[in-house]
């Protein structure tokens, strides 16, 4: 168990800087999710903590010790990779035991630990199998088992669920969360999937172009995005951005409003025509075209009537649900 500290962490490949200084203090036992679109530097950040990428400047600290130049193995971390990275020629048991064998752990101890992990992950019947004889979800569990048996101070997850199908992803997400709660190990988890981020994180780091745009608890980030990027990235369907002039606002470069914060009414702040409506069952997404041709999405409960395509309708919203951003995308005070 340990804290993790990143201090003004930067990374350059050649002359291009890809991480522009990230700071965070991670508490012992905290589950941190790093989320962002591809190419935002989230994996690079994780790999710097793992020791698989060198640190260009700044500090990585694990449990109060600066580990910039420490080999991955000495950092007391364990990592779960996107493609599982299981050793194809080794049995499930050997895959889990390999790190311990290298660490010269006594044989009996290795057996106990692997047995424990296998039980926890329901892998007991498969210990003698080779990875290719397992399903995707089972491989994923083996990769987790390999991390668990090490009893590391920090778990690092690099998009561990991205190769699973949607249903399995939901199940494994719950299992990971339960496991982390049970073991209480500090975790860093990289994903591009905001649902994973929202459900797993104690706190999340939203990365954008090598910068940590916002760090905070999921609901805080959702409710109070600090930049236009975060507002657009977190939440599904994404936040609508509207020309301030269109709704009589001044002093902001753009206005954001979430689809769920708008209602379709007979008369409201702005009018639009219904382009199409997606009825999803519990809710309906109504896509509207405003006068200027701009598209807006409204999310409404299934209890509301579904408007006809081509109808002209009005929109209204509560004033406090508007989010105002400046030219650079920074949030302005209301």
């Amino acid at each position: 168990m340990a804290t993790v500290t990143l201090k003004n962490l930067r990374k350059s490949f050649g002359k291009t800087e890809v991480i522009h200084g990230v700071d965070i203090d991670i508490q012992d036992g905290e589950f941190i999710v790093i989320v962002g679109p591809s190419g935002c530097g989230k994996s690079t950040l994780l790999r710097m903590v793992a020791g698989l990428e060198t640190v260009t400047s700044g500090e990585v600290g694990i449990d109060g010790r600066v580990v910039n130049d420490v080999e991955p193995m000495e950092r007391d971390i364990a990592m779960v990779f996107q493609n599982y990275a299981l050793y194809p020629h080794m049995s499930v048991f050997d895959n889990m035991a390999y790190g311990l064998k290298i660490g010269k752990t006594p044989k009996s101890e290795i057996e106990t630990r692997v047995a424990q992990a296998a039980k926890m992950l329901q892998l007991e019947p498969y210990l003698a199998r080779k990875p290719r004889e397992l399903s995707g979800g089972q491989r994923q569990r083996v990769a987790m088992g390999r991390a668990i048996v090490r009893k590391p101070a920090v778990f690092l997850f690099d998009e561990p669920l991205s190769n699973l199908d949607a249903k399995l992803r939901v199940q494994m997400r719950l299992e990971i969360k339960a496991l982390q709660r049970e073991l209480g190990v500090t975790s860093l988890y990289v994903t591009h999937d905001q649902v994973e981020a929202m459900t797993l994180a104690d706190r999340m780091i939203v990365m954008n172009g090598g910068v940590a745009d916002q760090i905070g608890a999921p609901l805080d980030v959702y409710a109070d995005p600090q930049t236009a990027f975060v507002a657009g990235f977190i939440g599904s369907p994404p936040t609508n951005f509207i020309e301030p002039a269109l709704i009589g606002q001044t002093g902001a470069a753009q206005i954001g409003i979430r689809p769920e914060h708008m209602q379709i009414t007979q008369s409201g702040q702005v009018e639009g025509s219904v382009a199409y409506a997606e009825a999803l069952g519990a809710e309906t997404l109504v896509h509207l075209r405003l006068a200027q041709g701009q598209m807006i999405t409204v999310r409404q409960d299934a209890s509301h009537p579904i408007p006809q395509e081509g109808d002209t309708v009005a929109l209204e919203w509560a004033a406090q649900s508007l989010m105002r951003f400046d030219q650079a995308g920074k949030r302005l005070a209301d």
Binding site: L52, E71, Q82, N83, H89, Y98, G99, R146
Partner: peptide, 25 residues
């Protein structure tokens, strides 16, 4: 895959160990 070399590194295998334990088999 590169991930395999990285997994071995995280597991504490040095380059020669990786060569003999993973690459060779």
């Amino acid at each position: 895959p590169d991930e395999l070399a990285e997994a071995a590194r995280v597991d504490g295998a040095g380059p020669m160990r990786f060569f003999f334990d993973i690459l060779l088999p």
